Amino acid sequence: MDFTYDDEQQALREAVRGLLATAYADHEARRRTVAAEPGFDRALWGRLAEMGILGLPFSESDGGVGAGPVEIGIVCQELGRVLAPEPYLSGVVHAGGLVAAVGTAEQRADLLGRLSAGDLLLAAADTSPGDRWAARADGVRASVVGDGWTLDGVADPVMGGESADCFVVTAALPDGGGTGVFLVAADDVSRSGYAAADLTRAATVRFEGSAATPLGEPGRDLAPSIATISDLTRILGANQALGVLQSQLRATTDYLGSRKQFGVTLNTFQALTFRAADMYVSLELVHSMVDWATMTIAGGDRDAVAEAADRVGLQVSRSGRHIGQEAIQLHGGIGMTAEYAVGVGTAHLAVLEQWLGNGPHHLARLAGRVDDHELVDAL
């Protein structure tokens, strides 16, 4: 299996990296951006639209580019490398992915066309307080009122929800009919925005008789499609985490090579170089798993994608904790501050994990699939 990028993929990486370097040349630029409204750079978002980056995941008939998962993964890695706060993973990959998976042809052309052009910002409201990482919807309930639908309940956290124009909402259908997906305008909800641990924006969204438009066939149980899009988001979120981990290792090795103690640089001390070498091993484990999981998406097998999402999610959780903790320890006190990217990168990994699923969750799902073997007597 060939894991190397072709010339077009390399060109995409260089183009995205060059664009992000203009906005986030250093961590201070990122700090200024997240401190101001709306928490990301709208000018950069427009440039991403002009380059076709926002339309990468969607077919040309829906106004997109029709790129594959590897190309989308490259973009996510580059965003993670500079800790870009733009809601690409939440708004394009996740919310846009739900529309692409379950929407009608007319809905896809309208919503995804405007999303790709940068004229519409979506957020997926599919997380119930206290009941995360499930394809079913318990926190929001759908009701038929006259000729239309309304929603009641709470979704939290909604990543990128503070500035979204529309919400793609998963809701429990009446009479135990499963889970549907709906589109709700931002004016029809009440939302409370807040800063996550990495200073990116999220929101608590309340639906109180909010007018909703079903995506796809009204009243149909869409839980399988919701689960698959969540798994795709987990894999591409792992790509974003990979970019963070690469930058953390690079920052740590640079620091060890420049910071002096007792008149010599820190990389003179063998114990510290061994710890950095262990970080590199953890990073390469993640890199291999991310490449494999991303290529699994192209096969189109839902079960294979679900297993790949859990395998890569578990590895990212374990390696991310190791690399993040070591990066902070080897930097000393500065690694704990919000003024330095290492600590914020570790916080970003924690936010991704709490949004998309932590290590024990992925491990439990993997263990649940081991049901086709006979019990073995250890004696």
Rank of each mutant, 00 (worst) to 15 (best):
A109N: 04
R47F: 02
S163N: 08
S288P: 06
Q10I: 05
V169T: 07
T213G: 07
G55E: 07
V82Y: 07
G332A: 02
T204M: 13
L375F: 14
D6P: 08
G219S: 05
G139V: 02
A171Q: 01
R132Y: 10
A95N: 03
T265R: 15
G193P: 12
G63E: 06
Y5G: 00
G39S: 09
G118L: 00
L115P: 00
P129Q: 09
L352F: 05
T127E: 15
E71Y: 13
R30E: 01
A327F: 05
G263W: 07
D278H: 12
R321F: 08
S59G: 15
L122G: 07
M336G: 10
G176H: 03
R191I: 00
Q10S: 09
M279G: 05
D291C: 11
G299N: 12
I323W: 04
A203G: 13
A203L: 15
T265Q: 13
V82Q: 07
Y194D: 11
Y24I: 01
E106H: 15
L111Y: 07
W149H: 08
D138W: 13
D310V: 06
Q107C: 07
R32W: 06
V75M: 10
A43L: 13
V344N: 12
Y24E: 04
E86G: 08
I328P: 13
G345T: 03
M1W: 14
Y194S: 10
S210E: 04
R132F: 13
G18A: 06
R191D: 09
R114S: 11
A84N: 12
S116R: 01
R47L: 11
G263S: 08
A172F: 05
T252R: 00
G113C: 02
D254R: 15
A327C: 05
L121G: 03
G80P: 01
V158K: 05
V168T: 01
L356T: 05
G161T: 00
P214Y: 04
R141W: 02
G73Y: 09
G177C: 02
V184I: 10
A378K: 12
H361S: 12
G96P: 10
Y280C: 03
L151N: 11
D7L: 14
R81S: 10
P224N: 07
M159T: 12
G103F: 02
H94E: 12
G68C: 11
L83Q: 04
L352H: 01
L98H: 08
Q240C: 08
V92S: 04
S230H: 15
G68L: 04
T265N: 15
L272F: 06
A25Y: 14
F58R: 06
A223Y: 03
R201Y: 09
A49H: 06
R108M: 03
D278E: 15
L183R: 01
M336Y: 11
Y5S: 11
D187C: 06
P224C: 10
S230Q: 15
Q329H: 14
A293W: 04
A84R: 13
R114P: 05
V189H: 06
A11W: 01
R141D: 12
G335F: 02
D188T: 04
F182N: 08
I53L: 15
E162N: 10
V281E: 15
G209S: 02
A101V: 03
N358S: 10
L366P: 13
F167A: 03
R136P: 10
D2E: 11
G80H: 09
T268G: 14
P69C: 10
